[in-house]
Simulated assay, not measured.
Amino acid sequence: MSAAAPYAGLSPDLVLDAVAATGLRPDGRLLALNSYENRVYQAGLEDGGFVVAKFYRPARWSDAAIDEEHAFARELAEADLPVVAPLVFAGRSLLAHAGFRYALYPRRGGRAPMLESREHLEWMGRLIARIHAVGARAPFRHRGALDRAAFVAAPMQAVLASPLLPARLADAYRAAGARLDAAIAARQAAVGPLRTLRLHGDCHPGNVLWTDAGPHFVDLDDARMGPAVQDLWMLAADAAAMDALLDGYAQFRDFDPAELALVPALRAMRLLHYAGWIAARWADPAFPAAFPFAAEARWWEQHVADLGEAAEALA
């Protein structure tokens, strides 16, 4: 295993052996699921059904941080919330096999939510409020926060250290990023102190599956501390959608309307983080294949322009 290709040794046989190490009996069926940060597989079982095996990227999270993620998922499930929690074997949900850390999950199907439906948006708002009610009980201690250090400084450092950024754009990128960072800081200061809580953290439509019984959430891999609005804004295509989400949210939990002013700053932080994430992971062979545009100078030219526009909008 190497930092450049952390999953080079993760063969199909190794995945099946890891499932079998828990006492389950895989039947040989294996399907790689869409995931870049980690590696995720659906494995068939001899007794019927499937499990989902998630292999964690080495060095991204500490064991303590992954244990917190799992404990949060179990806490939500025990509160009768539709969140997929990891399976437990001999008292442990974070497992290890052949140098890889992994967890097994029950397979839960579903379809994409209809975010143009006010009924669906209100339902999502109610569910997120209930998740936040549990998330507010206690803080994370090992998973960090949604802050400028993690979502501005670190990704900018990764981009500036990467060969992907054309040398002629380095000064422009550094200046645009600094302006945007200052604008983000100013917006946060203007909004003032906010309550933070344990969040899903990456609450976009792809992490919500809808069934006839309603929505359920998957993938708490980005769970961290932050303001409640972080779990709402990526589901809202416009002001009307946000209104619907908040109407549902208010049925179970109070929402501080001052947090809405943070949405442009959160969107800008995600913009910076996305480029930094690709740059930091570029040595992983999956990334050039999935994000070939990042090797093109024109994409970085547009990214620098987008940073400048985001800073102007925030100002």
Rank of each mutant, 00 (worst) to 15 (best):
A4S: 12
S11P: 04
A21V: 10
L24M: 07
L31F: 11
L31E: 15
L31K: 15
A32T: 14
A32N: 10
S35L: 08
R39E: 07
R39D: 03
V40F: 04
A43K: 01
D47Y: 06
G48I: 06
G49D: 13
V52Q: 02
V52K: 03
K54C: 03
F55L: 11
F55K: 05
P58L: 11
A59S: 15
W61V: 05
S62D: 08
A65T: 06
E69T: 05
H70P: 09
H70K: 08
R74K: 11
E75S: 15
D80Q: 06
D80N: 02
L81H: 07
A85Y: 05
A85Q: 01
A85C: 05
S93P: 03
L95F: 00
H97K: 12
A98W: 03
G99C: 11
G99M: 07
F100L: 10
F100C: 03
R101T: 08
R101K: 09
Y102D: 05
Y102F: 15
Y105F: 15
G109D: 14
R111K: 12
R111L: 15
A112V: 08
M114R: 14
M114F: 11
M114H: 13
W123Q: 15
G125C: 04
L127Q: 00
I131L: 14
I131V: 15
R137C: 04
G144T: 08
A149D: 09
A149F: 05
A150V: 12
V152Q: 02
P155L: 05
L160V: 08
A161C: 02
R168D: 04
R168T: 10
A170G: 08
R174K: 12
A175H: 04
A176Y: 00
L180A: 04
A182G: 14
I184Q: 04
I184Y: 01
A186V: 11
A186I: 12
R187V: 05
T196H: 09
C203R: 06
P205Y: 03
G206A: 10
V208Q: 08
W210F: 12
T211D: 11
P215D: 13
H216P: 14
F217W: 12
D221A: 11
D221E: 13
D222E: 15
R224M: 14
G226I: 08
G226D: 00
A228V: 12
L232D: 00
L232K: 02
A236L: 12
D238V: 12
A239H: 13
A241I: 09
M242P: 00
L246V: 12
L246H: 05
A250Y: 10
R253T: 04
R253H: 09
F255C: 12
P257I: 07
L260M: 09
A265G: 10
L266C: 08
A268M: 10
L272P: 01
Y274V: 08
A279V: 02
W282H: 13
A283C: 12
F291P: 01
F291L: 07
P292I: 14
F293A: 15
E296S: 10
D306W: 11
G308H: 03
A311E: 01
L314A: 09
